[in-house]
Computed example of a mutant assay.
Amino acid sequence: MEAPESGAEAEEVRKEGQLASEAKVHFKVTRFIMEAGVKLGMQSIPIATACTIYHKFFCETKLDAYDPYLIAMSAIYLAGKVEEQHLRTRDIINVSHRYLNPKSEPLELDSWFWELRDSIVQCELLMLRVLHFRVSFQHPHKYLLHYLISLKNWMNRHSWERTPVSLAAWALLRDSYHGALCLQYPAQHIAVAVLYLALQCYGVEVPADSEAEKPWWQVFSEDLTKPVIDNIVSDLIQIYTMDTEIP
């Protein structure tokens, strides 16, 4: 017969369960941000900024205090301003409504519509205050582009062209925004880690890496260590595991 859990252990289990549940909510909402962003014609950087704003907001607040989809809509609106790809609130509302209610009729410009529009604008101001107006971020995208170009020049052209390492790395980077990796690791480290994982997925080896003084990934980011890469890869795998658990 197993001994009953102590109060501290039970509380720890409860917290772990709550964190796992919240992570799934954030996964679903950031998926909404990405898909709505694509439908709104947003580029990859504004979408990444919207996801980062969303994650950062909920690092500062409790999930049950706010409607996560309203926060997401406001994050999209704010990210458009930050990255100078301005979006109309009307378009954000219409796309979001269609995403969340796929079988419903288009929204009328009634009082509910204007209330929602006002809520998005007010929520944007709240987010700015909570985040202390720090809503500009350094994303891994430019680093990944640079690393891919450099690696392509190192590699055998035929082996590079027959494996979709580049596409896989970009997909991994995009999917990383389902979690809060963007807040936990430097942009350069994430860029290297997604490239590392993409190479691993396709069994592609960097030429002369074993004979080199330092591994290829440390050439790109000198302060990066293998345990950090492993942690980022592990977090990415957790995201994909969560994807299989969410309908």
Rank of each mutant, 00 (worst) to 15 (best):
A169R: 01
G203Q: 08
A180S: 14
Y147L: 06
Y202E: 08
H132E: 15
F133T: 11
R174E: 09
L199T: 00
Q200C: 10
L151E: 02
S210A: 13
P140F: 03
G203V: 10
V219Q: 15
A191G: 06
D175A: 02
K142W: 15
Y143V: 00
T163S: 14
S150I: 09
F220I: 03
S221P: 08
A180R: 03
T163G: 04
V206T: 07
G203A: 07
L183I: 08
A169V: 06
W216D: 01
H158I: 11
A198F: 00
V165M: 04
A212L: 08
Y177A: 02
R134V: 04
F220G: 02
L167M: 11
A191N: 02
A168M: 12
R134G: 04
V219M: 12
Y143M: 04
A191Q: 07
R174Q: 09
Y147S: 03
G179M: 01
F133H: 14
V206H: 00
K152T: 04
L183H: 09
S150D: 12
L173Q: 07
I149C: 14
F220P: 03
I190G: 02
H178E: 06
R134C: 09
H141S: 07
K214Q: 15
E222L: 13
P207T: 04
R134P: 02
L197Y: 14
K152Y: 11
W170Y: 15
W217E: 05
F133D: 14
A171M: 12
T163M: 09
R174D: 15
N156S: 10
C182L: 08
R174P: 01
Y177F: 15
V192H: 07
V192M: 03
D209S: 07
H139G: 06
I149L: 14
Q184E: 15
L144S: 06
R134K: 15
C182M: 11
V194N: 01
P207H: 05
S136D: 13
H146P: 09
A208C: 13
V219G: 11
H139K: 06
H139L: 07
S166R: 12
A212P: 04
I149A: 15
E211Y: 14
L173D: 04
W160F: 08
L151F: 06
L144A: 11
P207E: 10
C201M: 12
R134D: 11
Q188I: 09
W160L: 02
Y177Q: 05
H132D: 15
H132N: 15
E161I: 08
G179Y: 03
A212D: 10
L195K: 08
S166Y: 01
F137K: 06
V135Q: 02
E213I: 07
K214G: 08
A168P: 02
V165F: 07
D175T: 03
G203Y: 08
R157V: 12
E222H: 14
V219P: 05
R134F: 07
F133Q: 11
L183V: 10
V206A: 09
W154A: 13
Y147T: 02
L173C: 11
V192W: 04
L172I: 02
M155K: 00
E211K: 13
L145E: 15
L197E: 13
F220R: 07
P140M: 05
Q188F: 03
Y177K: 03
A191C: 09
W170C: 11
A193W: 03
A169W: 00
F220L: 14
S210R: 12
I149Y: 15
R157H: 13
N153M: 11
L197K: 14
E161H: 12
E211P: 06
H189W: 10
D209H: 03
